[in-house]
């Protein structure tokens, strides 16, 4: 997985979290994962299709999700399963939407599918060409994990090369 694909997601997560939480974030652990995805807390999964294909998971523990939701809403919110799920999905939507915007402006064309809550303990296993990168964002109110498994869609590469004039 090339850094040119990853960096927009890091930038987007950093910007969305910083704006929503009114605090700075830092990138903590960064690991490659070739095993089946193991959920850490409440996770939202978004599939992307197009020049780059794969999935991105945003994952945070329920307590952090409530704190994040409260910060985003600007008011203390009561804990509820629905609130937690909604928060994680919307966070995923915003991070991935912003990253895809940046990649699209670089010439990659994607379709972003609506987020789905990922409730099973394990997720789709990454393979040789879809190794997953797990990035931990440390915020003042808890850790947010971004799990990215993307690969170039080889069938569309000539199309893209023609589009960007290479």
């Amino acid at each position: 997985m090339k850094m040119e694909l990853i960096q927009p997601f890091i930038n987007a997560a950093d910007a969305v979290l910083a704006q929503g939480l009114h605090c700075t974030t830092s990138v903590g652990n960064l690991t490659m994962d070739q095993e089946a995805y193991r959920r850490k807390g409440v996770a939202a999964l978004i599939w992307v299709t197009g020049d780059i294909e794969g999935r991105i998971v945003i994952d945070l523990d329920p307590d952090t999700a409530v704190r994040v939701a409260s910060k985003f809403a600007g008011a203390e919110l009561p804990e509820s399963d629905e609130l937690v799920r909604e928060t994680v999905c919307e966070l995923a939507n915003q991070v991935i939407g912003n990253a895809v915007t940046s990649l699209n402006d670089q010439g990659f064309h994607f379709r972003v599918h609506p987020p789905v809550v990922h409730t099973s303990e394990h997720g789709p296993k990454s393979s040789e060409d879809t190794e997953a990168l797990v990035i931990c964002f440390e915020t003042g109110i808890g850790n947010v994990f971004l799990n990215i498994a993307l690969r170039h869609n080889s069938s569309r590469q000539p199309e893209r090369a023609a589009a960007v004039g290479h």
Binding site: V95, N98, V100, T101, N104, D105, H109, V112
Partner: peptide
């Protein structure tokens, strides 16, 4: 109102 804000969209 969307997070996907590329020019084409």
């Amino acid at each position: 109102v969307s997070s996907v804000g590329y020019q084409e969209n």
